[in-house]
Computed example of a mutant assay.
Amino acid sequence: MKKTFSASAIAALGLAAALLAAPAAYSAEQPAIPAGETISTWVENGENGRYLLQLLEGGVPAGETEITGTILSDTDCAPDADGINHCKNEIRLEDGSVLKGVNNHRMSVNRCLKPGETVKVSQLADGWAVVLIEDATESR
Rank of each mutant, 00 (worst) to 15 (best):
A62P: 10
M1T: 15
A129R: 06
L52D: 02
G101Y: 07
M107E: 11
I91C: 10
C87R: 04
I10N: 09
Q54V: 03
N89A: 15
V43F: 12
V102P: 03
A7N: 09
A18E: 01
C87D: 07
R50E: 12
L132F: 03
L113S: 09
I33E: 00
V130P: 01
E94S: 09
D80M: 08
A28Q: 10
H105S: 07
G63Y: 02
V131H: 09
Y51M: 05
A18F: 09
K114Q: 14
D95W: 01
G58R: 07
V121Q: 06
C87V: 05
I33L: 06
L55D: 06
D80K: 06
L99K: 12
P34N: 07
Q54Y: 11
S73W: 07
A9Q: 15
L20N: 09
I33C: 00
Y26Q: 09
I67Q: 05
T41Y: 02
A16P: 04
C112G: 03
S40L: 07
P115I: 13
P115A: 14
D82Q: 12
G116P: 04
L15A: 15
K120P: 02
S122V: 05
W42I: 00
A81E: 13
A24G: 15
E94L: 03
D80Q: 04
S97D: 02
L53F: 01
R92S: 14
Q54T: 03
A11M: 03
G46R: 03
A12I: 13
T4W: 08
N104T: 00
V60P: 13
L99D: 04
T68L: 06
D135R: 09
A136D: 14
A25I: 15
T70N: 10
A9G: 04
N104K: 03
D80A: 06
Q54F: 07
G59I: 03
M1F: 11
A62C: 01
T65R: 07
C112L: 06
N89W: 08
S97R: 07
L52V: 02
L72Q: 14
